[in-house]
Design a protein around this nucleic acid. Structure first.
Lengths: 204, 204
DNA sequence: TGCGGACTTGAATGATCGCTCAAGTCCGCG
DNA sequence: CGCGGACTTGAGCGATCATTCAAGTCCGCA
């Protein structure tokens, strides 16, 4: 892990620190220390702190499939349950960090989108990949006629981000669980009279 | 407006600047300039920038009723429509700012909750007041038996915050509208076979 | 008239910010 | 061997950061 190439070490340090403290609150000096790198090296690969952020937002999508979506696809075959496994993934992150660590993209989206408009397309690409994955899963689900899958996937993303935000604000998982439970209800209603058959639901 | 007392002028300047640029990205010097105040005055009322933030989070709830909830209650009598009028309020804020200005509390929640844990209770109080208002409205709605109003209100808040976040990231209202449309569908399903009567729906 | 506390003034502080750059190391290729 | 480009080193830049404080103004009350 320490023998990764310099650029990747910088990105990994920035990823962790931006996630934990935010973009503005993280000084370049801290990134340098954590990455074990000197200023000149960082500024060899990235012209500015802002370009480092852009590099990170281009780096994120390459992590999503191996770390998030593929393990879920391997462990859970049923479409709707995959969505809730994805939410459970974020819940676990909250739980293990005492409701401190949420969605790294979401944090950056709110902090950075105004002051650095040039990263907006990169934020949107991350959101689009996330909701696109969910929409792909849901294509296999039996839902009410007329369900717009992209819209539903955007909705799931909104619920996740809003639920994470409330949990971080409250320092408690309760609002997260409440939002997810209500989302479950929405899916129940969407499946209720979907195809008449196969009301396959889960144990837990 | 300029003749408000000093403490309020500082809070108003901080409110606007934190909303537009975020907490970390806003320098104390900028707040001082916008408020037309000298450093000593600010530090007379607030011991630190962080206490100013806390003061702001205590100040916010006093704005919610007169600016947000009461006008909605006056203009819209039907419970569920009040919820969507509230969402339309945030949509208007996004639209008028080119998808830059979202929910001020949500921004602060993500930026600040980790690094300044002592403001967490204040964030939660703001969220609780928001969702409490929504839950109060929904008490008059005819929804499916077994609907948990607090849970549903937390869900609405999550959708709103997540939808605002996506709109700001994308620089477009489309994801916001998508999430709200799906939330409308959820309410439609909750009302569908609620009390059999009074399926009062709206024109627009 | 004079005292005291609330509030204002504004220069100054040390720390930290993002960033630069000249010098140097290293390695592949001729 | 020798050239050139990729990358590293690390001291140091000016700017800005949040904050301090001694001095001063103002006003209600005695």
């Amino acid at each position: 892990m320490a023998e990764a190439d310099t650029r990747t070490r910088i990105l990994e340090a920035a990823r962790r620190l931006f996630h934990e403290q935010g973009y503005g609150a993280t000084g370049v000096a801290t990134i340098l220390r954590e990455a074990g790198v000197h200023p000149g090296s960082l500024y060899h690969f990235f012209r500015s702190k802002e370009e480092l952020l852009a590099g990170l937002l281009e780096y994120y999508p390459s992590l999503f499939a191996p770390i998030v979506s593929r393990p879920i696809e391997a462990a859970e075959k049923e479409a709707v349950e995959r969505v809730f496994a994805l939410l459970a993934f974020y819940r676990k992150g909250l739980e293990e960090s005492g409701c401190r660590l949420g969605c790294p993209i979401g944090n950056l989206a709110l902090e950075v989108s105004d002051n650095h408009p040039e990263v907006r397309p990169l934020l949107e690409r991350n959101f689009a990949m996330w909701s696109g994955t969910v929409a792909g899963w849901l294509a296999r689900a039996r839902l009410r006629r007329g369900t717009d899958l992209d819209r539903l996937a955007r909705f799931v993303l909104a619920v996740m981000e809003g639920a994470v935000m409330q949990a971080r604000g409250a320092g408690s998982l309760a609002p997260f669980d409440a939002a997810v439970a209500e989302l479950r209800r929405h899916f129940d209603l969407l499946q209720e009279r979907a195809g008449a058959s196969r009301a396959r639901r889960r144990k837990r």
